[in-house]
Design a protein around this nucleic acid. Structure first.
Lengths: 231, 231
DNA sequence: ATTCTTTATTGATATAGATCAATGATTACA
DNA sequence: TGTAATCATTGATCTATATCAATAAAGAAT
């Protein structure tokens, strides 16, 4: 958040592009660049809504956003998306609709690219196609972990999983600056906000976690891992 | 179950191959055929175990099988697989491991094909690759529906969803012959076997469902749809 | 600063659903 | 053809978790 991210005029020169683009040559990156535009979202703003047409691939270049399914009365956060990761929903290859919504948690910038270009490159470049399939597979594995956590673990285990997700996968730090709300934490763990808060409180009381303002510190990683394992 | 399924010696001539093979030419089907073998599983037999190396694509040619994650103390059935559908797990493109187990519910026959051939064809045939990606996308959408059903609906809604899944997607009939156990129904709906049985009983009492031996009949589809909707 | 609005926290209560335990009904099987 | 083994059913009890309600804290706005 200190200093603006560098905005390059060409994907080929971009130092912060998603690793999936590694398999693309200069010409292909040029194609991507042609149909690309850069957008800035303020924290809280919706990037796209579930049910609306899905015409663009979204690459997050700064900030933090969430993708979430608007279910029966409450939301389920499928993932948080940070630089330099992209959002490319399953509807693109089915009916060009969004099957989840996305919104900015922190101020976020993103590059949008027409999905048609993306699909064309998948057809013409087998390496790119394979990278894409690998990425889809990774997401599926992540979904599996999440559904097992949500359906077979109790609240303590689910909050433990969410804290590790935040620390290891999103903020990539241990004392980390928590930028998502308690409601988001709850939506990530499939429980009510109040329950999430209570679990955090217990973790604090047991010395597993310290919370100082927005600074979260997992003090006893081993114990928290165990809570994650034992449900 | 009456009469054996026709077993052809060549994929090109096979009348019961998965629709994904439509985009393959005779030569390509020949390649598939070369590395293919046909296996029969008895009801209850495990086809492959979560955690073991995943070397083959599995196409179900007769019978019914389930794919399920062995979680913390209980199983979650991700899907039932019937002819002519295939099993190709997300581990194939990641680390060649199975991330779920599969077992035969009814006596089941299947064609196995080395995943290397499959991956090669995905690289060489863009239509095939696209069909494959579409199929992955469909599975992802199905996962989304399932996770929302499991995490945001109460038991009645989840059993309703499972009954519609069985009737509409698996047995493709309304009075249908139930070949999965109550435990499987429970594992499909993320609840205990006892709870699943109790919900069935309530549905019977309310005239929504009739159960005569193994014959299930959804008597009031509209009402059951409503139960599915209202959680 | 002061008010307004959102977000976080805590407590009390209600309940969906699991678990345990017992029994009945099928199916395998020797 | 009876005995074991599995599967289905029902009831009683317990608990994890949601919901409701009230308050506190933290930002945002004027």
């Amino acid at each position: 958040m200190n200093g603006k991210p560098p905005i390059f005029t060409n994907c080929a020169d971009c130092s912060c592009k998603s690793s999936i683009f590694k398999s693309l040559g200069t010409d292909e990156l040029g194609e991507i660049n042609t149909g690309r535009f850069h957008v800035a979202y303020k924290a809280g703003e919706i990037m796209f809504k579930q049910g609306t047409p899905s015409s663009h691939f979204v690459c997050i270049t700064s900030g933090l956003s969430k993708i979430y399914i608007e279910g029966y009365g409450k939301n389920l956060i499928l993932a948080l998306v940070k630089p330099v990761d992209y959002i490319f929903g399953p509807g693109v290859y089915i009916d060009n609709k969004h099957y989840y919504s996305a919104s900015a948690i922190e101020d976020t910038t993103a590059c949008l690219v027409d999905t048609a270009i993306f699909k064309k490159l998948i057809r013409s470049n087998p390496d790119f196609a394979e990278s894409f399939i690998k990425r889809l597979s990774m997401q599926t594995l992540f979904n599996f972990e999440q559904v097992i956590s949500l359906t077979q673990k109790q609240m303590h285990g689910r909050i433990a999983d969410a804290l590790f997700y935040l620390s290891e996968k999103i903020y990539c730090a241990n004392p980390f600056n928590m930028t998502i709300s308690r409601q988001d934490l709850a939506d990530l763990s499939g429980m009510s906000k109040e329950s999430a808060i209570r679990i955090l409180k217990e973790f604090k009381e047991e010395g597993i976690l310290s919370v100082d303002g927005n600074l979260f510190d997992i003090l006893n990683i081993k114990h928290l891992k165990q809570i994650s394992e034992t449900g």
